[in-house]
């Protein structure tokens, strides 16, 4: 039983990794002087007319900009400093996404254009959530069936042991 708990805990921590996102995907295009973000539901259409809050680097909870996505799920803002800009997208019925985009010094010096699909807090690393949806689905199904098999084997083992004890 204890082994099972340790296994599940490790699994959860391992999957969770750095930063969790929630049902909405945001892709950024940086085109000086603006950063353009396209919001879409995972495996579905654009996040229309959602509320968007933008927080500048090091400004804490004070909003830099408050706005919304258009019917195509797009919004833009004009950063005034380099650093990590926090973006919160909320569609008003439970779907919410907190993410970040890194704006470099070069962005302000030249006309930088960069596609940043699924950027993970500006680290540039490709995270688990950047894997194709079908691959994640297969991975999840494997885990669920794996856990079911493990529990089944433990139960059967217990039944066999109790049968042997009685004999």
């Amino acid at each position: 039983m204890m082994n099972g708990v340790i296994f599940l805990t490790s699994l959860v921590i391992g999957i969770a990794g750095p930063g969790l996102e929630h049902g909405i995907e945001v892709d950024f295009v940086k085109r000086a002087p603006s950063v353009i973000a396209t919001c879409s539901y995972t495996g579905s259409g654009p996040v229309k007319n959602a509320e968007v809050l933008v927080y500048s680097p090091g400004e804490g909870d004070d909003e830099y900009q408050k706005g919304g996505t258009d019917v195509n799920g797009v919004f833009a803002f004009v950063p005034d400093a380099p650093g990590q800009w926090k973006i919160v997208v909320d569609d008003g019925h439970g779907h919410r996404k907190e993410t970040a985009v890194t704006v470099t010094e070069e962005f302000f010096l030249s006309e930088e254009t960069a596609q940043v699909p699924g950027e993970d807090a500006g680290t540039g690393k490709i995270g688990f959530t950047d894997l194709p949806l079908w691959l994640r689905a297969i991975w999840g199904l494997t885990l669920i069936f794996g856990i079911a098999c493990l529990l089944y084997l433990l139960k059967v083992k217990k039944l066999i042991q109790s049968g042997n004890d009685r004999a």
């Binding site: 259409g45 999840g140 079911a148």
Partner: peptide
């Protein structure tokens, strides 16, 4: 019981993937 687990596993798998079948409606999903 041991006999419940395969059924629970299959139902868990079905619930897990059911959320991937989306309907865009009234500006949400």
């Amino acid at each position: 019981e041991a006999g419940d687990i395969p059924r629970m596993g299959f139902m868990g798998a079905a619930l897990f993937v059911a959320s991937l079948i989306h309907f865009p409606i009234a500006g949400t999903s």
